[in-house]
Design a binder for these strands. Structure first.
Length: 100
DNA sequence: TAGATGACTCACA
DNA sequence: ATGTGAGCCATCT
């Protein structure tokens, strides 16, 4: 299951973000978003998996980011070319559709 | 091994 | 808008 999360994460193109629910849905359990968040929180390979691309349903950045705080996540997202407004991203624009 | 917690999300009052 | 309850999975204690 975690492997699916990581795979999904690696599949996320640069400049795009995904929601926990979306990842959970991909892994097979839409309601397992909690587990997804937990997996990313205890992210085994921070430098390998773009965990900062994971945002909540509202496009809000992670509530308790693991490294340096959400500010760092914001910076990273901006580095990807994503416009971050007050620790929030426009899902309508940046949320990635795997089928797309 | 079992119980509790958490980067979540949705629904209802 | 704010608060509570339910549902899943991985990790912690």
């Amino acid at each position: 299951m975690k492997e699916k999360v990581f795979e999904f994460l690696l599949n996320v193109p640069k400049g795009k973000v995904v929601t926990y629910g979306q990842i959970a849905e991909y892994t097979g359990n839409k309601k397992a978003a909690r587990a997804v968040g937990n997996i990313l929180h205890r992210n085994p390979d921070e430098n390998k998996y773009p965990c900062y691309k994971a945002v909540d349903s509202k496009g809000n950045l992670s509530r308790n980011f693991a490294f340096g705080g959400i500010e760092m996540q914001k910076e990273k997202l901006e580095s990807e070319g994503i416009e971050v407004r007050n620790y929030k991203v426009d899902l309508n624009t940046y949320k990635w559709n795997e089928t797309k």
